[in-house]
Simulated scan of single mutants.
Amino acid sequence: MNKKLRVQFLLIPVVLILLIGTFYSLPYYVTKPGMAKELHPIIEVENGFDEEGSFMLTTVRMGRANIYSFLLAKLSDYQKIYPLEDIRGEEESEEEYNVRQLHLMDSSKLSAIEVAYKKAGIPVQYEYKGVYVLNVVESMPAHEKLLPGDRIFKVDNLDFTSSEEFISYVSEKDAGEVLTLTYERRNKEGEVEVAVQTFPEDKSKVGIGIGLVDDKEIQVEPEVEIDSEEIGGPSAGFMFALEIYNQLTEEDMTRGYQIAGTGTISTNGKIGRIGGIEQKIVAADRAGADIFFAPFEEGAEDSNYRAAIRTAEDIGSKMEIVPVDNFDEAIAYLENLS
């Protein structure tokens, strides 16, 4: 065998090992700093006011680990490794996890709009659209008939006005009775028959085996559009609310600063804890943010704010880290900026 053929022959197992390392998934997820993205281009309030600076959401990049990403995360300061069960629920598929994350993002948008409009003194109303399927239990009748992301808006040709009403209707049926469900999937309507069955863990209750939440649409004037693309999770809600409020009010809350931050937001304006605060600090610092809002969690020892302070000091960031518990606190801070 000549030297050239010998080298080619030896390269084959090396290439195979590299391919296996790239495509073989480990039972872990790896997270790393994502991006800090300006919100003005993706949030548009009809006839809204402009701003000199900008509000930015911060993200964490997450993906299923392979051998290389796992080893790299072990050697990196701001990459983290999580076991599969810490990210996805028990028996939750990848598709169900992604649907759940996108629904959490949609819910955060609704809360952000409500908080911002109410703060601006503008009334809000909701239009109920049905129930949204989050997950489907494999051992129950809905399996392979309904999918995560389906919107059910009729049962036995009857409209209902809440998920509680839907659950109540189904729970009154006897095991074996068949329901006709009208649903929407990828903008197309469909109809499916699903039998009611007792739950394996509780024979006294019946159902069809879906996890669900209300699907509703907020109605406001002026209208607002949020194009969050494929970003999932609830952690951008607080920053969404700031951007929407800023476009609703003539006074520019940014004062020309680049303002990043993170935190969930409830309809009463409370700002909640999120994951990956250290990686979001890194992302915001790289993007040149001047100020970073972090959930204070009423001064908890392990609060996002304290972790953010430690990270900012560790990377030598000049950002001002601002603790916040609710939306009003954030607005008061911005109003006092020079």
Rank of each mutant, 00 (worst) to 15 (best):
P295R: 01
E229A: 10
A287F: 14
G233S: 10
V15D: 07
Y183A: 06
E189W: 04
G276D: 05
A236V: 11
G276V: 13
L147Q: 11
A307E: 14
E91P: 02
I226W: 08
F23L: 04
I277S: 02
Q279H: 02
L337H: 02
V60A: 04
D285H: 08
I17E: 00
E230T: 13
V324R: 01
E329M: 00
I20E: 01
V170M: 15
G130M: 09
E51L: 13
L26F: 09
M239I: 12
M56T: 07
E320Q: 11
G149A: 12
G269N: 01
A195Y: 07
S303C: 05
S338V: 08
E329S: 03
E138W: 12
V136A: 08
Q125C: 00
F160C: 14
D50L: 15
F296G: 01
S266G: 01
M1Y: 06
Q258Y: 00
L75K: 00
L16K: 03
R151F: 01
T249W: 03
V7L: 09
Y126T: 13
R61Y: 03
V45P: 10
K118F: 02
E95P: 02
L104R: 12
G237H: 05
Y29G: 06
Y97W: 13
E44M: 04
V322T: 00
V322D: 02
Y82H: 15
F9S: 09
V136L: 05
A36L: 10
G237Q: 05
F166E: 04
D314S: 09
